[in-house]
Design a protein around this nucleic acid. Structure first.
Lengths: 328, 328
DNA sequence: CTGAAAGCGCTTACAG
DNA sequence: CTGAAAGCGCTTACAG
């Protein structure tokens, strides 16, 4: 390439990167030679000397889950916009894979990491303490770590969802959700529910609460368990749409009318939520934006820019559809 | 690292890669030093000398579409198993982005590319002719290119779906599908439908056919158009589930019973297909497997192994659910 | 403005 | 079995 145009490789590098002035004639010659030869710079070599790969590693529990794939889409688009590529790591939520990928990403010399896990453990925290990588967390706050995160405020969203039912006049409000061991999907949302109940002066009843692994079937059964004992509830807050759909099916199967007899509010606004009949009232997360903001924050860090905030909570929205109505 | 253990970097390299015998004592010393220092090999540098990055680039139209995310999951898992990482490129189906990404992947020195597009053009073909990359196509045959592809046999699947309806005694079978400009989702499936009709000795009627951009709404309207004129059809083959769902909604809205009055068979078996009521009879694609096989084929090529077949069609399956029944 | 040289962190003949 | 040296394809002081 360089010899082809009769100049040094230094000069070729300079016209390619515009890093230093090059005389117009020579620039011209180089450009022509590049065209003719179909020369492509080797970004690996460049990365080696610059210590910068322009690759961002992204670790997700399950790319086939629409939540994560939408989020990855957001990350990918913003990354691409800023000239970064995405190295995708799918972990199936397994700690072992997560740790392997974290190490691998470092060896691959990625510039930064966007990290998602359903279960943040000390292993993760310690790893990030030992390895100073630029990183951004999604949906998890990392205790004692100087790593920013982006999320929505799950506690307040759950509070608002519950409160919405209360304002509709409901008093017997069941809770169906994911395991409390899950900090975000389980605990935070449950706490929001509980607080709303307390604040409304309603008696909190543990019997109206069912938590289990997330799944349509589990939502169905959790709902069945509750209805077996309390057939006088008038509302359910299901802390994720998957279980909400299970709950809806159960309620319908038992012959209750939705929303006439029982109102249901979900959480997440997955695509299905607006398609099932009756369409689900639920909390919408700005999933794409979460991914996009995470990427933007990481890239700012990579550029050495100061982040104004260590944590970003994006706005959520209550989408009223057909599963909720005033209490009789 | 090397000096830490008092040996040469050559030796360190050799214990790390097991590329040459190293005396047990020295190996031991090196291993210890690695532990102590938390040394991590720089895979970029290794890639530069080996001319091998162990990265596979994957190009998809829309990662947030469950079809592609499921497929990427398959690719990712197999790749990871063989020690490859995935560089994810989302194109929104735009030719410009596709070409940019193809070039970028080459500059990033990926070992191979798994390529998906909804619209394979000469630009793509020419690019692959000019750049000899190891690649595998998904769902598209590349005319005049020595690039293997993996897919299902869309023509035969559509044939079988239509034939299934014929065997149920249906004679007036409408067709609703994607644009014929789409080789796979449009043309191949339509041809399969047509051939089945012919083979059964049924009169093919162009008026029973509606193609349009894929979308629930469009499926609904295509169905409405047909029912406006032919209210005596007893079955519909909708060549993708999205439009099938639209068609189902339309049929129901018009007061027909499914499957009593009209049977519907879809194509793809998207998650929704089994969730809507009545649950959709449809053709299931082994999406995860398509991704997995594509990765496996590419890796074989990367290893210099011969592929037995240039094209792999994975088995599809007709899933009978509640939208199809014998003709009255 | 341009080129020769050093160096990024590895691997691998080559010599011993 | 082990080390010094060359080289992968770049970038960037340094000298001119």
């Amino acid at each position: 390439m360089a010899r082809r145009s009769g100049v040094s490789i230094s000069t070729v590098s300079r016209v390619l990167n515009n890093s230093k002035p090059v005389s117009p004639e020579i620039r011209q010659k180089v450009l022509e030679a590049i065209k003719e030869t179909g020369y492509r710079p080797n970004l690996l070599a460049r990365g080696l000397v610059l210590r910068k790969t322009n690759i961002i590693g992204i670790i997700v529990p399950d790319i086939s889950n629409s939540y994560y794939s939408e989020l990855v889409k957001g990350t990918e688009e913003i990354s691409n916009m800023y000239n970064y590529s995405i190295l995708l790591c799918n972990t199936y939520g397994e700690l072992k894979k997560e740790m392997e990928y974290l190490n691998l990403l470092l060896e691959k010399q990625v510039d930064g990491i966007i990290f998602m896990t359903t279960n943040l453990t000390d292993d993760h925290i310690n790893w990030f303490k030992e390895n100073e990588v630029k990183a951004v967390f999604v949906n998890r706050r990392a205790e004692g770590l100087d790593i920013p995160y982006v999320s929505i405020d799950n506690y307040n969203a759950a509070y608002d969802a519950t409160n919405y039912l209360i304002k509709l006049g409901h008093k017997k409000i069941a809770y169906v959700g994911g395991p409390l061991s899950d900090e975000v999907l389980g605990k935070e949302r449950f706490e929001g529910y509980k607080q709303a109940i307390y604040d409304a002066g309603i008696d909190f009843k543990q019997e109206l609460v069912r938590v289990s692994k997330i799944g349509i079937r589990n939502g169905y059964e959790a709902m069945a368990d509750i209805l077996d004992v309390y057939n006088d509830i008038t509302a359910v807050f299901a802390a994720n749409d998957i279980m909400a759909i299970g709950a809806v099916n159960c309620i319908l199967d038992r012959g209750y009318k939705i929303p006439d007899d029982i109102s249901v509010v979900g959480f997440d606004d997955i695509p299905l939520a607006s398609i099932i009949r009756p369409a689900l009232t639920t909390i919408r997360q700005p999933i794409y934006d979460i991914g996009a903001v995470a990427a933007r924050m990481l890239i700012k860090k990579l550029n050495g820019e100061k982040l104004e905030e260590k944590a970003v909570n994006l706005p959520y929205q209550l989408i009223e559809r057909d599963t909720s109505a005033k209490a009789r």
